[in-house]
Design a protein around this nucleic acid. Sequence first.
DNA 1: GTCTATACGACGATAGAC
DNA 2: GTCTATCGTCGTATAGAC
Lengths: 194, 194
Amino acid sequence: MAKRGPYEKGEAKRKEILEAALDIFAAEGYRGTSLRKVAARCNISLPGLMHYFDSKEDLLTQVLRMRDETARVRQEQRTEPDRYREIIREGAATPGLVELFVSMAAAASDPAHPAHAHFAERYPLMRSQVTDWLRRRLDTTPMRSDIPPERLAALLIAVVDGIQLQWLVDRSVDMEQTMDDAVALLLPPDAAGD
Amino acid sequence: MAKRGPYEKGEAKRKEILEAALDIFAAEGYRGTSLRKVAARCNISLPGLMHYFDSKEDLLTQVLRMRDETARVRQEQRTEPDRYREIIREGAATPGLVELFVSMAAAASDPAHPAHAHFAERYPLMRSQVTDWLRRRLDTTPMRSDIPPERLAALLIAVVDGIQLQWLVDRSVDMEQTMDDAVALLLPPDAAGD
DNA sequence: GTCTATACGACGATAGAC
DNA sequence: GTCTATCGTCGTATAGAC
C-alpha cells in the first residue's frame, strides 16, 4: 500500500519521542522538563523534534492521549468491580504523571489551549461510562440515595481527581481508602464493598 | 517604634504588588502572566519587584497565602451550615484563581517548591477543621455510615477540589449541586440538607 | 519526509551602580 | 529601595541539506 518506506521510520521515531517524553515527565515532573531535554534523549535536535509536533503543548496533549489510550485498553480486559482501584494504584506509582495530568487540566481551562478539546471530551465520556456502571449496579443492588446516576458519576470522578491532588502534596492520605469510602457511601450498609 | 520611615513605604508597595498580582492572575490565568506585566502594573521594574519577592513562585505562594487568609477571616464571621457553598461560589466567580490554586498545588508536590510548605500545612489543617465540623454534627444528627470523621473530611475536601478541576475544563458541571449531593450522602434520608 | 543549524523574542533571575 | 544591563534558558520560526 501507500504507507511504506519513509513513513515507517517516521512513525517509529514519533513513538520513541512520545515514550521518552512520558518517561521524563514522569521522572522530573511537568516543570523543569524542556523540549531540548526530550530531544536529547531521542538523539535528535530540537527542530527535529518539532517536525513531529506542532508545539510543546501539542506534544504534552498527545502524551496524555497515548496514556489514556493504553490505560483504556488495559481496563477493558479487566474484571468489572474494582476498576477505580487500578486507576488509583497506577497514579500512586507515577506521581510525575499525576502532576502532569493536573497541570494540563488546569491549563486546558483556556479554550485556546491545545489540550482543551481533549479534556472537554474526556470528562463527559468518563461521566457517561461511570453512569452506565452505576445504572448496571442499580439493577441488582439498591442504592442508598435517590441522587440520579449522572450526578453521582460527576461526584465519583471528582473524588478520584480531588484525592489525587490532595495526595500529590500530602502523601500521607490514603487514596485507595478514600475511594473505598466513597463507594461505600453509595451502597446499603450490608453490601460488601466490591 | 522601630517600624517607621523607610519600612512603611516598602510594606505598602509590597501589598500593592500582591494585590496587582492577584488581579492579573485572576483575569489572565496562571499561564501568560509574566512578572514584567505585574511590575508594569505597579509602575516598577522587574528587579524592583524582585526586591520584595525571591522568585515568581515565592510571589505566587504569598498571593495564595493572602487569599487564604482573607477567605478564612470572612468565613469566621459567617453562620455555620453552608460554609462550603460560599467557597464554591467564590471559586465560580474567579476561574483564574481556581486555575492558579490547582496549578500551584500540582507544582507544590515537589518538596523543593516554595509553596510546598503552604499546601503541606493547609490540607491537614482543613481536614481537622472539617473533622471538627462533622463531629459537632454527629452530636445532633446521626450519620449514615460508620466511616470515621477523619476519613470523611479527606473525602469531602477531595470532592471540593475535584469538582473545581472538572468545572475548570467543563463549565457545564454544577459545582454547588455536586457538593450538596456529597453532603446529602452523609445524612439520613429524612434530614433536610443544610 | 526527515533532520540540522541558526536565530528571535520573552522569560525568570542576578550583579552592581545610584 | 530602585534602577540599567546582562545572563542563561525557554518555546518557537525559518532556511535549507539530504
